[in-house]
């Protein structure tokens, strides 16, 4: 079967967009979970993503792990970091004004960035990886890296869905998200549930960091800011606090950015992401899925 040049280009860009979008979706899930449960936008989340990439980098270069063990190590460290971050920085402020927590998040973000610069330097680092395999499907090039990023993201999202919907902890998360005081009265350990949410969200961000590292081949201490912001846009776009919304928002954003580049306006890709945020805030602040579902985590 022969496809026309236009179709091939379209499919190729579609693959590029989905790969990028699945990373945004993974990071956005962490934003949205934390927002769903304690109504905090955790701006340090983008930097947890960056640290995930850095941990993955060291797991591979210093301890000689291969990709999947490095991914798991990075997810575990990020999960622990998420719990510690919540306990030290956010828990004492849980009952104060929301802006106080938000400021703390911004402070944490700066701390993570500059601490990383201090420890490993501001130079971009090459992320070690094996040579990819390229498949040519009807003229469309598919790289094994793209398959890896997409498959890993899908598996993680399915796992998350399972945890939230089928486990006891997931039920507790949904209950706390719905009404924290009532959940506490019903005997749910709210503190542990919130910590668990941070752990899961941070682990997903860490995984996204390692995936980005292996896909683009570079890690640097300031990479978290832009990805964090884009993921925030993705979360708001899908409806902040709604899990499927974050996935949808991430994919939509990845495709939108790729689409803008494809039609020749590559320098506007960041602008487009934020224009989407402004438009969604004006016309549908609850996000795409904001009204259809009441389920929150």
């Amino acid at each position: 079967m022969d496809l026309s040049a236009k179709t091939i280009e379209f499919l190729q860009q579609l693959i590029n967009g989905i790969s990028l979008g699945s990373v945004y979706a993974l990071v956005a899930l962490g934003y949205t979970m934390v927002y769903g449960i304690i109504k905090l936008i955790n701006f340090a989340h983008g930097d947890v993503f960056m640290l995930g990439a850095v941990f993955g980098y060291f797991a591979i270069t210093m301890f000689g792990l291969s990709f999947y063990p490095a991914l798991i190590v990075s997810m575990v460290i990020c999960a622990a970091l998420g719990v510690v971050m919540e306990r030290i920085a956010y828990k004492p402020l849980r009952n104060s004004h929301r802006v106080a927590s938000l400021m703390t998040a911004v402070g944490l973000s700066l701390f993570f960035q500059n601490f990383t610069v201090y420890r490993i330097g501001a130079q971009p680092k090459a992320f070690p990886r094996s040579a990819p395999v390229n498949w040519n499907v009807f003229g469309v090039n598919i790289s094994s890296r793209q398959v890896l990023i997409l498959a890993t993201a899908v598996v993680l999202m399915i796992a998350l869905h399972f945890i939230v919907q089928k486990t006891k902890m997931g039920k507790a998360m949904r209950a706390v998200s719905f009404d924290r005081d009532a959940a506490m009265l019903m005997g749910i350990n709210v503190n542990n549930t919130i910590s668990f949410t941070f752990a899961i969200g941070s682990a997903l961000a860490g995984a996204a960091g390692v995936l980005v590292g292996q896909y683009y081949g570079v890690v640097n201490p300031l990479m978290g800011t832009l990805y964090g912001l884009k993921a925030f846009v993705a979360a708001v776009l899908g409806g902040i606090g709604i899990l499927p919304g974050a996935m949808l928002g991430g994919l939509f954003l990845g495709l939108a950015e790729t689409g803008v580049s494809a039609i020749g306006y590559s320098t506007f890709r960041d602008a487009v992401a934020f224009a989407i945020l402004i438009i969604i805030l004006i016309f549908k602040p609850a996000g795409i899925l904001g009204k259809n579902t009441r389920e929150k985590v």
Binding site: F43, Q113, L281
Partner: peptide
């Protein structure tokens, strides 16, 4: 209220990006 909150949040992040530009490295 949520809309306002998100806008405040966005502004704060914008300041984060700006400050990130100027405070890259304290290395002597």
């Amino acid at each position: 209220k949520r809309k306002l909150f998100l806008i405040i949040a966005l502004l704060m992040v914008a300041s984060l990006v700006l400050s990130a530009c100027t405070s890259k490295d304290p290395a002597p």
